[in-house]
């Protein structure tokens, strides 16, 4: 017989790993957009929820296979983000204090989306489940892990890896990092800054959608995920250092394990509260974050 404490401990580890990878991915999406465009997306939590809600509708109400539903949402996310950038985001590119304007505008989007959620999906169900892609439990060494969570974990890690490599070596990634570091200098070197902004917004938003979809593949979810994830992603970005993908990765993983541990011993709200406090402490003591360049 296995020691039950050991089992709890192991499942905590795997949960932490899955949550951490998803947190890190989502926060990376938020931090790329902020670092590049200076857009602190307060609606990231709502975006994170929107994607799996649509996928849930496609797979349960319309009977699509979950793989198809997830892929369709990811693809549909691109024109959504594109329209948002054209209609709204780009209007502020020349505003001096645009991060405040953006924050207020995205708070407005948050309010709209949460209103929409509560009169639509909120009426249809309390809990949402995307049908699992795979059944059963896989053992990685001694670690038990449901197969669909393993898929989510692998997906999140793969995307994170791709982000890292892409930002470092791809032409677009390098241009994006140049804009991160110094807008004016990048513009002088002939980088089309507005195109990079558009690309960063599409990339960051898609990454957030992907994070939400991966989360929904691993766990069932409800509407409260939006605000807790919004806070978590922001806290990770601030603590890790706005614009730092490495910071998002390290702090995201850390927060994932914290969440897993706290959820065993206390309520998840305690975890959210601890992120809030961590964010506040960093804001007050070291606003540039732990991993600032």
């Amino acid at each position: 017989m296995v020691d039950p404490n050991l089992l709890i401990g192991l499942s905590m580890l795997t949960t932490g790993l899955v949550l951490g990878a998803i947190f890190a991915l989502t926060a990376a999406g938020v931090t790329i957009v902020y670092g590049c465009i200076w857009l602190p997306n307060a609606a990231s939590g709502q975006f994170f929820l929107l994607a799996p809600l649509v996928a849930w509708s496609l797979s349960t109400a319309m009977g699509w296979s979950p793989i198809l539903a997830v892929a369709a949402v990811l693809i549909a996310g691109l024109p959504f983000a594109y329209l948002l950038e054209r209609l709204l985001i780009r209007r502020f590119y020349d505003v001096p204090d645009r991060n405040i304007a953006y924050f207020v505008v995205t708070l407005g989007i948050t309010q709209i989306l949460s209103g929409v959620f509560s009169i639509t999906w909120g009426q249809w169900s309390d809990q949402y489940n995307i049908p699992p892609l795979a059944e059963g439990v896989v053992f990685i060494g001694p670690f038990p892990l449901p197969a669909n969570r393993l898929i989510a974990l692998v997906g999140a890690l793969a995307l994170l890896g791709a982000l890292f490599v892409g930002l470092r070596y791809h032409r677009f990634g390098r241009a994006l990092r140049a804009v991160f570091q110094n807008r004016e200098a990048a513009a002088l070197r002939g980088v089309d800054v507005q195109r990079i902004y558009l690309g960063a917004f599409l990339l960051g938003t898609s990454v957030i959608f992907a994070g939400g979809l991966l989360y929904a593949m691993a766990y069932s979810f409800d509407l409260s995920v939006a605000w807790s994830m919004g806070i978590t992603a922001f806290a990770i970005m601030i603590v890790g250092g706005p614009g730092s993908v490495l910071g998002a990765l390290v702090v995201g993983m850390l927060f994932g394990f914290v969440q897993a541990a706290v959820s065993v011993f206390a309520s998840p709200t305690a975890a959210t509260l601890s992120y809030l406090l961590a964010m506040l402490v960093i804001l007050l003591l070291r606003p540039s974050g732990l991993f600032a360049r």
Binding site: L88, V104, V105, G108, I109, Q111, I112, S114, G115, V116
Partner: peptide, 9 residues
């Protein structure tokens, strides 16, 4: 909420 949010924007 939808109304107020739209007005904010």
């Amino acid at each position: 909420d939808i109304f107020y949010g739209s007005l904010i924007i």
